[in-house]
């Protein structure tokens, strides 16, 4: 059976609301989300197991394959983003890959590729690139196959705040 079945995925996913401007913070309760605030600039790889809202600048790779990633209206992302669900309000250049769904809002400006079994785009959004809605696409299979995850090295223990939930590997963070 296809793991990215469009017909089984009719439930709407509620987008997490972007947080008010704040520095990066992390909530530790179940179902929490991390926020990269508008003054934060991250270069590197972000991995973890909680939802993420990006209002700052991120360059590199974002891998939250079981969670949602929201690029807020102030967010500027130049990265490849892998997540369960992705919402875009801000500016994005790179590849967006979601196991479930990608939602592009009208304020979004995107250049790159979008890969997800379900994609929605509000009129007014600026997009140039490729939208791959094929649930059997190679990109989806590679990104979310269990085999691929097994081959990936285990991420080191988180050190940022001791929550034990998410890892942030920033190869040089600076305030924007």
């Amino acid at each position: 059976m296809n793991m990215f079945n469009k017909k089984d995925s009719s439930t709407e996913t509620e987008a997490p609301r972007p947080a008010p401007e704040s520095p990066a913070r992390r909530e530790t309760s179940a179902g929490s989300r991390a926020v990269i605030g508008s003054s934060i600039h991250v270069d590197g790889t972000l991995r973890g197991n909680e939802d993420l809202v990006i209002e700052g600048k991120v360059n590199g790779t974002v891998e939250l394959k079981k969670n949602s990633v929201t690029i807020g209206a102030q967010g500027e992302v130049n990265a490849d983003v892998y997540a369960h669900t992705i919402f875009v309000d801000g500016t994005m250049e790179g590849n967006l890959v979601a196991a479930e769904r990608i939602v592009i809002r009208k304020s979004a400006k995107i250049r790159g590729s979008i890969t997800a079994p379900r994609v929605s785009l509000e009129d007014g959004a600026r997009f140039n690139g490729t939208i791959d809605m094929d649930p059997e696409s190679e990109v989806l299979s590679k990104a979310f196959s269990r085999q691929a995850d097994k081959q990936r090295p285990t991420p080191p223990t988180p050190t940022a705040n001791g929550s034990g939930k998410a890892e942030t590997k920033a190869a040089g963070s600076s305030a924007a």
Binding site: R118, D123, F127, N128, I131, M133, D134, E136
Partner: peptide, 30 residues
């Protein structure tokens, strides 16, 4: 079947919704 479509106009919600039921790649070149 997989289909590859090139749209020479701006991305539009209706087309994407319409194509969502297909195995489809949509290239947008506005």
């Amino acid at each position: 079947q997989r289909h590859v479509i090139l749209d020479l106009g701006p991305a539009r919600s209706g087309l994407i919704e319409r194509l969502n039921v297909l195995r489809c790649r949509l290239d947008v070149l506005d």
